[in-house]
Computed example of a mutant assay.
Amino acid sequence: MVTHCGCGLPVAKRTSWTSENPGRKYLACKFYNHETGHRGCNTFEWIDEDILDWQRDVTNMLVAEKHRLAIDNNMLKSRLVCESHEKDRLSS
């Protein structure tokens, strides 16, 4: 297992949340940016086994549901704030 990257720094342990590899652990250069794909160097190593197709599907469904619930929660919070402001306006 890799302990230092090509930059000479200790590698960072991270978790992938791409739809292809949801929840998989890997080691990479601490300057790796998963959003841009920019790497400080090319050091990268999976530290767990690949997941099965059904595991990938279930994990992706759960991640999508989590995002949907977070959006629903934020909408409900906004609705409560609006209703509270309306109530305060009417009682003034």
Rank of each mutant, 00 (worst) to 15 (best):
M1Y: 13
V2H: 01
V2Y: 04
V2P: 07
V2C: 01
T3K: 06
H4G: 01
G8L: 01
L9V: 04
L9D: 05
L9Q: 08
V11R: 00
A12D: 09
K13F: 09
R14Y: 02
T15P: 08
T15H: 11
T15C: 12
W17A: 09
W17H: 14
S19V: 14
S19H: 09
E20A: 10
N21Q: 09
N21H: 15
N21E: 09
N21I: 06
P22Y: 03
P22R: 00
P22H: 01
P22A: 03
G23V: 03
R24F: 10
R24C: 02
K25A: 07
K25C: 02
Y26N: 05
L27C: 04
L27H: 07
A28S: 08
C29Q: 02
C29S: 03
C29V: 03
K30S: 12
K30G: 03
K30Y: 04
K30C: 10
K30A: 11
F31D: 09
F31G: 08
Y32R: 00
N33R: 06
H34A: 10
H34E: 11
H34S: 06
H34V: 08
E35F: 11
T36M: 04
G37R: 03
G37C: 02
H38E: 11
R39F: 02
G40S: 00
G40D: 00
G40W: 01
C41P: 12
N42W: 02
N42A: 07
T43H: 03
T43S: 05
F44S: 00
W46H: 01
I47A: 02
D48F: 08
D48Q: 13
L52F: 13
L52V: 14
L52P: 11
D53I: 15
D53R: 09
D53V: 12
W54C: 08
W54F: 12
Q55N: 13
R56Y: 00
R56E: 11
R56G: 05
R56K: 15
D57N: 12
V58M: 12
T59P: 02
T59A: 15
L62K: 04
V63T: 14
A64R: 15
A64M: 13
K66H: 03
K66A: 09
H67F: 07
H67P: 00
L69V: 00
L69Q: 11
L69T: 01
A70W: 03
A70M: 04
I71S: 07
D72M: 05
D72Q: 11
N74R: 15
M75D: 09
K77Q: 15
S78E: 13
S78G: 13
L80P: 00
V81D: 07
C82A: 14
C82F: 04
E83A: 04
S84Y: 06
S84H: 06
E86D: 06
E86R: 10
E86A: 14
K87Y: 12
D88E: 12
R89G: 06
S91D: 10
